[in-house]
Design a protein around this nucleic acid. Sequence first.
DNA 1: TATGAATGAGGGTTCATTCAT
DNA 2: TATGAATGAACCCTCATTCAT
Lengths: 207, 207, 207, 207
Amino acid sequence: MGAVPTKKNPQVTASAPARRRELLRTAAEVFAEQGYNATTVRTIADHAGMLAGSLYYHFDSKESMLEEILRTFLDELWDGYDAVLDAGLGPRETLEALVTESFREIDRHRAAVAIYQKESRQLAAQERFTFLAESQRRFEKAWLSTLERGVAGRVFRDDLDVRLTYRFVRDTVWVAASWYRPGGQHSPEEIARQYLSMVLDGIAVRA
Amino acid sequence: MGAVPTKKNPQVTASAPARRRELLRTAAEVFAEQGYNATTVRTIADHAGMLAGSLYYHFDSKESMLEEILRTFLDELWDGYDAVLDAGLGPRETLEALVTESFREIDRHRAAVAIYQKESRQLAAQERFTFLAESQRRFEKAWLSTLERGVAGRVFRDDLDVRLTYRFVRDTVWVAASWYRPGGQHSPEEIARQYLSMVLDGIAVRA
Amino acid sequence: MGAVPTKKNPQVTASAPARRRELLRTAAEVFAEQGYNATTVRTIADHAGMLAGSLYYHFDSKESMLEEILRTFLDELWDGYDAVLDAGLGPRETLEALVTESFREIDRHRAAVAIYQKESRQLAAQERFTFLAESQRRFEKAWLSTLERGVAGRVFRDDLDVRLTYRFVRDTVWVAASWYRPGGQHSPEEIARQYLSMVLDGIAVRA
Amino acid sequence: MGAVPTKKNPQVTASAPARRRELLRTAAEVFAEQGYNATTVRTIADHAGMLAGSLYYHFDSKESMLEEILRTFLDELWDGYDAVLDAGLGPRETLEALVTESFREIDRHRAAVAIYQKESRQLAAQERFTFLAESQRRFEKAWLSTLERGVAGRVFRDDLDVRLTYRFVRDTVWVAASWYRPGGQHSPEEIARQYLSMVLDGIAVRA
DNA sequence: TATGAATGAGGGTTCATTCAT
DNA sequence: TATGAATGAACCCTCATTCAT
């Protein structure tokens, strides 16, 4: 008789993850371009060269595609961040490394980042996407502690509101996903360098 | 500037513009909170204490509400910007004035700004919302010319990519709408001051 | 601004319950004839002379229609049963009254009874329909105690398995809903009389 | 009697009829438990330890499985009934034998009987399942003639409506399939005996 | 001005079925 | 024999919109 699974889950069989990944990339691209709500399952299927119903062989729902896209992105992001945070760098070097890592991530997961930027606030309210809020908290803690370390060590100015500074830094970095195009004239490292130069030293000419 | 109504539009009879404005404020609030697509006409009506169908006495469509919200906001925004740009200020003072004006606008039209941030890219593709792209172009021109004037006048650094700088400045300013809460501890002017200090002089301690 | 209801519920306004009742009657008829699962919302709407989507102005879902049909039926049924059970009759008279009441109920709610017969077992497993199982239990208790009273009082034979007897009696009564047509040649009271005669005295000629 | 396959039917090659029978038993079980419409082909496949598509090597369609289940059951049923009807018994003995045979059939084909009870009315309307209506007619004729013989021979009461009596008897017998569990405390013969005692002599104590 | 009821297009999802491997 | 992937029709439901009152 064999086991009687109550739910299909071909996606767990670890076989043919290639198609899944391809489909997720396609979906992410469309989500990023049109917005999650405005994207129909049919549109994704069109881009993938199949019929809407066929997507459901691979995924449980449109929402589960979104979840997997965001989870995959955040997992990779935190791999990079954790490596930086565990490296024992000084506050300025940590900030530089985090920013550079962020732009690299935008380069690799542009679509996912754009989706994250646009939808995460609303999504986080749903049970299913609480991991977004959690990530947000870890993110904030990492940045705030770095900035505070820098202020304490007289590397960063102490006349700036740390939370405001955090917000400015955070947003500018990630908003870049909305205009960044991989393969353009600026490499992620180059963008990071310019961005850091501006954030650290300002755009005004020194007196 | 005026909209071109495709159908009857009793709202043009100049009667009860107060109710209209109130309804638009409500709609903007909901659009900002839930996203335009995710917002149903009934949700707006609920918040306004009426039934969904009743909104159509006041407005042609959900989209026309959105359009009016964004048009009203942009009109006011450009009133402020034009005043600054026509004042004959130097590049640094112009930048400071534009930033300050922007934060004031966020303070007054938080919801509209949030909507603009989130939806304008997709909307701009539609015939009806070409005014968004147009505004975007004027905006870019104003900022780029100010930055270039500053570089030429040795007020701003010349080793930064002007377009990248523009994007960073633009985004940081407007993204603030996503977390700014009017009536909070920071006035728009205070936020502008901190922001300008960071952008102009950097967050690093001077050597 | 008024209250901000999170859910529509025009059905609670107690206004225009006539349309609701009419729609429910239509739905019940179709459910009874084609089976709940095999009935499409479009079919119901067709029978009601409207479009499928319009049903959702009156009801939350197909399932909620089913629930209301069954609840209404069971409520009325128990009104009748409780009156009988509270009347302080002897076991034989109670049995006669319960049977007669049942056939009357079939006469009034033929569709609902047929649906109940066919679907209740599966439905009862769902959270939403636990009231079916509860009713089932009350039903069983009422019948068993009546039979047992009758056995104790030497009104009913004591050589029959009471549970088996209960099942036979219960099923024969309700299965009648599958072939009974109101307005036919037999009134519910006449059917009850014949049925009782058979159940009480048997079909064999007395020795 | 034989089905007329519209397409290829490798199952006719007389190979591995054992697997077929096993699959049909599984399908019957699931149909009985969840209802035919509510049962998905995948659920059957799950219970059989295979994938949904694989069932189509063995059967033309979900419907053909249902047909075969019901045909097999009815064929066996009529083998038993015909033996009884051809035995030249008196009306009372015929009735006893038919009832006993019915409970035996329920014991052997519980799932098929349950399916038959629940679905036959709707199915009979379809071309493919006209054999159900035909069986129904033979069934009715056998019972009615037996009852009428009994009335004529003063073995059964003549003050009861024969058609009503037939319906009661028929339904009670078959509805038993919905609660009967093979291997329980009552053998089919024991249930038949109790049932016959009730039907023939009634549940009331004789005066 | 607003309501109540309906429209109709479309969206996400399910599922029996097919078919190359 | 069975799998994996896809098809395509149909289904339940949502929602912007309309309109008579």
